[in-house]
């Protein structure tokens, strides 16, 4: 299980990079198992607040809502996931990014977990 050190993490298993890129974690994709469908419910230009729903990810046995780790304006959405939802399993921290945000208030990042705290949080739930 990977926990890249340059990311911040949420209790709902999203990650965010300092540049505003958002996705779900390795732990989350593992829990979901084979992802079959990704629906991003925000569009470029939308304003989202921290905790707003931004996407729904479905596997054969589960469905997960994905929430904005911080507030901001949606700068890009990853259209590639429409046809290749399996990227979420294959490359959760890379090709399977969901959206890019222009972060409104960088202070919101401080409230998130760093890699070691998140790793401990995942262990706790085993």
């Amino acid at each position: 299980m990977e926990f890249p050190a340059d990311l911040k993490y949420t209790k709902n298993d999203e990650w965010i990079r300092a540049d505003g890129t958002v996705g779900i974690t390795d732990y989350a994709q593992d829990q979901l198992s084979d992802v079959v469908f990704v629906e991003i419910v925000v569009s470029e230009g939308d304003e989202v607040a921290q905790g707003d729903i931004i996407a729904t990810i479905e596997s054969v046995k589960a469905a997960a809502d994905v929430y904005a780790p911080v507030g901001g304006k949606v700068a890009a959405v990853n259209a590639e996931l429409d046809d290749s939802p399996e990227l979420v399993n294959e490359d959760p921290y890379g090709k399977a990014w969901l959206i890019k945000l222009e972060i409104a208030d960088a202070a919101e990042l401080d409230g998130l977990m760093d890699a070691s705290a998140y790793e401990a949080y995942c262990k706790e739930r085993e």
Partner: peptide, 11 residues
């Protein structure tokens, strides 16, 4: 029938 491929069905 053996194990059925649910992922293929859903995709």
């Amino acid at each position: 029938f053996g194990r059925v491929d649910e992922v293929k069905a859903a995709k």
